[in-house]
Every structure is written in structure tokens, then in C-alpha cells.
Design a protein around this nucleic acid. Structure first.
Lengths: 122, 122
DNA sequence: ATAGTGGTTTGAGTAAACTCTAAGTCAAAT
DNA sequence: ATTTGACTTAGAGTTTACTCAAACCACTAT
């Protein structure tokens, strides 16, 4: 069981963000006798998954949608599958763009280096 | 020479966005006798480059910085090189995250499919 | 000649995702 | 006993990157 501060440190987000995610029904930790948030190992796993989705540009609204479907139980599995498949295809698009741009930068960088070298030769 | 509307269509952004980029000194087209913006082929190339940077998560402030350096001439080449190298390394980080997440989704998706299949067998 | 289309400006408004503030509770340490 | 530090809440404020509104101008088509 982790406090909000521990979780924040562990995953690298602020406590503000964790409370915000809770307000948005993305992650709903338990509470102790003082009303303080308590995150279990499985909350932590879920949070890490959420952060991966976020890092790969899934908007919070979509993440909320997925969280909602999950909370609704087994019969939403098809919807969740669809959502993940859509995101996977978005990731593949992003991979293409990044690879293209990476190549472009590779070229630009080499030509910049040549230009600077030639300038130094004078 | 392209009008703002033509450029917008060609690259897939709104005219609003193009005017916004101009206000931010990212792309400064010519003007005709009526004060209307005229984009040359090289403005278009620059814009496409800018959009690639944006699609690969470079923030507008960094893009502005690059545009500013470019406008300052040859002696800023080293700074531009540095900026592009930094961005390239950001792209490589993104590629890693995307690939990892893609694999994770691959697994999740197959297990969802199995789960749904098994349910249908009943 | 008037309606439509596409351009202009300044400045305000919006959406997303936090991020911070104020005012408070609680438990441990000095 | 009081300070410190970590937690609580509701609600306001911020940043980024647009996006829209209002009021205007110029050309074309009916």
C-alpha cells in the first residue's frame, strides 16, 4: 500500500496529477481511516499502463473512456479491444512519422556538420 | 505562389493556424499589392519541415527558436545543429516508448481476442 | 448592384491537461 | 506544546496551441 506521495515519486508524476486523475475517474485508490488515499500494487500497475497510453499520445478523454469500460465489467471487452486496436494503429502512424523525421534530421545534421567544418577550414 | 487558403489545403492546417504561425514569427510569407499573404515554394517547404517537427512533439517555442536562429544567419549554425541533435534524441526516446507500448498492446489485444472467443464458445 | 467567396486585422475565447492556492486535519519529532 | 511534514478539499489559475468573432476590403458571378 502506497501513499499518494510515494506513488508520485515511483511513477514520476505530481500528487496534483494523481488527484486530477482521480477526479477524472481514471484511477480510484482506496482510503484509510483518515480519508487518505492508499494505492495498491494493482493501482500502481494500472497507473503505469495509463501513463504509457498518455506518453503515446492517447488523450485523457480516451483514457477515461477505457477506464470507464473497464469498470463496467466483462461485457465491455469488445469495446475495449476496439479502443486498443485503434490506439495501436495510431502508434503505428506515429512510428512512421518519427522514423521519417529521424531520417530527415539525420541528413540535416550531417549537412550542418559539414557546413560548420568547412567554415572552420578558413 | 500560393494564397493562404491554398497552403492551408495543401498542408492540412487551417488558415487560422497559418496566421498564428506568422504572429509567432515561424513563417513569414510575402504580401501582394492588396496586402494578402503569398507563400512561395520555399515557404511551403519550410512549413512542411515545421509540421514534421510539430508532429514529432517539438513545442512551438522550440520551433520559434529554430526559426529565429535561422533568420539570424550563418553564424547560428552551431546552435541550430545542437537544437536538431537534441530533437533527434527526443525522437529516439519516443521511438522506444512507442515500440514498447506497441508490444504491450499487441499482447493485450491477443488476450482480449482470446477472452472474447472463449466467451462466444458458450 | 448585390451576394458570395476569400482575403485582412485585433483581440477575445476555448480545450486539454495540469498546477496551484487557501484553509484545514493529523501524527511524529523537538 | 508547537513545529514540521504529509495528507485533505474545493475551486481558481496557467500554459499551449490554437480557434473564433467582428468588422472590414476586393474581386467575381448573377
Amino acid at each position: 500500500m502506497y501513499t499518494i506521495g510515494e506513488v508520485a515519486k515511483l511513477v514520476g508524476v505530481s500528487t496534483h496529477t494523481l488527484r486530477y486523475y482521480e477526479k477524472e475517474n481514471i484511477i480510484l485508490p482506496d482510503r484509510n481511516e483518515h480519508g487518505e488515499r492508499k494505492y495498491t500494487e494493482s493501482h500502481l500497475q494500472w497507473l503505469k499502463f495509463v501513463l504509457k497510453l498518455k506518453e503515446t499520445q492517447m488523450p485523457i478523454t480516451k483514457i477515461k473512456e477505457y477506464a470507464y469500460l473497464y469498470s463496467e465489467g466483462e461485457h465491455t471487452a469488445i469495446n475495449r479491444l476496439k479502443l486498443l486496436e485503434d490506439h495501436k494503429s495510431s502508434i503505428e502512424t506515429q512510428l512512421k512519422t518519427l522514423e521519417e523525421t529521424n531520417n530527415m534530421l539525420e541528413h540535416k545534421i550531417t549537412s550542418y556538420k559539414e557546413k560548420i567544418l568547412k567554415r572552420k577550414e578558413n
